[in-house]
Amino acid sequence: MTRKGKRLTLIIGALAALGLAAGLMLFALRDNIVFFYTPSELTTKTIPPGARLRIGGLVKEGSVVKNGKDVAFAVTDRTKDLNVSYTGLLPDLFREGQGVVVDGVLNPDGAFRADSVLAKHDERYMPKDVADKLKAQGVWQGEKK
């Protein structure tokens, strides 16, 4: 091959690899991102069935019902409530009136089926705007200033 030819092969190879990576990424971004809403935002959106969502707010006081490993509670942003069901262990810091973030799917009946529940101060992170909201409502003391 000529010098030019070799260089061309290289460049084409590189472009092909990058194109593949970009394609993969776009595909993954379309299918695998999780939108984050508060209960009131949820009511203003049309959610495609089966879409994964992340909902943040406070655990409504008096809403937690435990039945073995099944738990039902409501997430509230003090404007709207959303009923959530979950099976499994609740995080250490899950408490009524405290901040919570749930991941899962919205059922057709309007209830939310969570497959993961993160509590305030949980080891995994709390989205900033939930924290902001909680701070604004004076619920969050913050770990540090």
């Binding site: 993969l24 695998n32 991102i33």
Partner: peptide
């Protein structure tokens, strides 16, 4: 202003 989270499914797929 749209909030999303990109987690393990995205990174695994790519």
């Amino acid at each position: 202003g749209e909030k999303i989270s990109v987690g393990a499914p995205f990174f695994n797929t790519v």
